[in-house]
């Protein structure tokens, strides 16, 4: 596997959320808005990349019997560091993520990558794997976050939780279009509120997984059809070959008495 493939595999082919269904707890709990999803994703990228690097560095010295507790201590250290830094420099994000920030420790994606990849590969590949998988995880969270926030409020805000800029800004809002015709219309009054609640997370995730499964099924069907066509073509070729062989054999059979007569 090339370094590029190693980096890109986490985005779609082996996406932790939509393909492996890993890290479902934050995927359902903190994806209320685009910004909380992005915040959680970035924290996971940091923890996953750092823990992969350290696990890869120390793998030779950690006895096989105690590798899991040792990896958990390493992951927990990075999560604690991230928790303190977030509490100090992004207090709104810290409040919004709540208990799910320390729960990154038990995100099976992080321990899974440490165990399955970092403990068997070199530092550079482990770092690339951590970064790629982390960004793939972030992409998954952001997709759910955007869908949920847009359906619940009719727009996407930025700058509420992350310490970027002085004031929150509206990235997208249906108000921008509708207010051209009706100035008193507020799309937030008509948002589907359930999408900002936990049941909405399940519905949004289900919708996105359905799209992924539909695309996968269509791809599988195309492959199956191509396979069937190839088998049919092979059968046809084999039949033609058999037919040609039979004709040849019959011709040889007919030609054999004539040759014998000519010989006499």
């Amino acid at each position: 596997m090339t370094k590029k493939d190693n980096f890109l595999k986490g985005f779609f082919k082996e996406n932790p959320i939509f393909v492996f269904l890993l890290g479902m707890c934050p995927a359902l709990a903190v994806t209320t808005t685009f910004e909380t999803s992005l915040g959680m994703g970035l924290l996971v990228v940091f923890v996953l990349t750092s823990s992969n690097i350290v696990v890869s560095l120390v793998k030779k010295w950690i006895p096989h019997d105690v590798r899991t507790p040792a990896y958990i201590v390493i992951i927990a250290t990075f999560v604690t560091v991230v928790k303190m830094l977030t509490e100090a420099y992004a207090i709104e994000l810290y409040d919004a993520l709540g208990v799910f920030l320390p729960l990154i420790v038990v995100n099976c994606l992080i321990l899974g990558r440490a165990e399955a990849f970092a403990s068997k590969n070199n530092v550079v590949d482990s770092a690339i794997d951590g970064l790629g998988m982390g960004l793939g995880f972030t992409l998954g969270l952001i997709t759910i976050g955007i869908l949920r926030e847009f359906l619940a409020t009719g727009g996407i805000m930025f700058g509420v939780y992350l310490p970027i800029g002085d004031h929150p800004i509206t990235l997208v809002s249906l108000d921008m279009i509708i207010n051209l015709f009706n100035a008193n219309f507020h799309i937030t009054d008509y948002g589907i509120k359930v999408f900002s609640l936990p049941p909405g997370a399940f519905i949004a995730l289900g919708m996105i997984l359905a799209v992924f499964q539909f695309k996968k099924a269509r791809k599988d069907r195309k492959i199956a059809i191509a396979k069937m066509e190839m088998i049919a073509e092979k059968k046809r070729l084999a039949a033609e070959k058999k037919k040609a062989a039979a004709i040849k054999a019959a011709q040889e059979k007919q030609a054999a008495p004539k040759l014998a007569k000519a010989g006499e």
């Binding site: 120390v58 010295w61 040792a70 201590v73 390493i74 250290t77 560091v81 303190m84 830094l85």
Partner: peptide
């Protein structure tokens, strides 16, 4: 090994 891992972890957390 576990003591060393724990100690290093403690030092990092203390520093941050």
């Amino acid at each position: 090994v576990l003591v060393v891992v724990g100690a290093l972890s403690g030092i990092i957390i203390y520093s941050v």
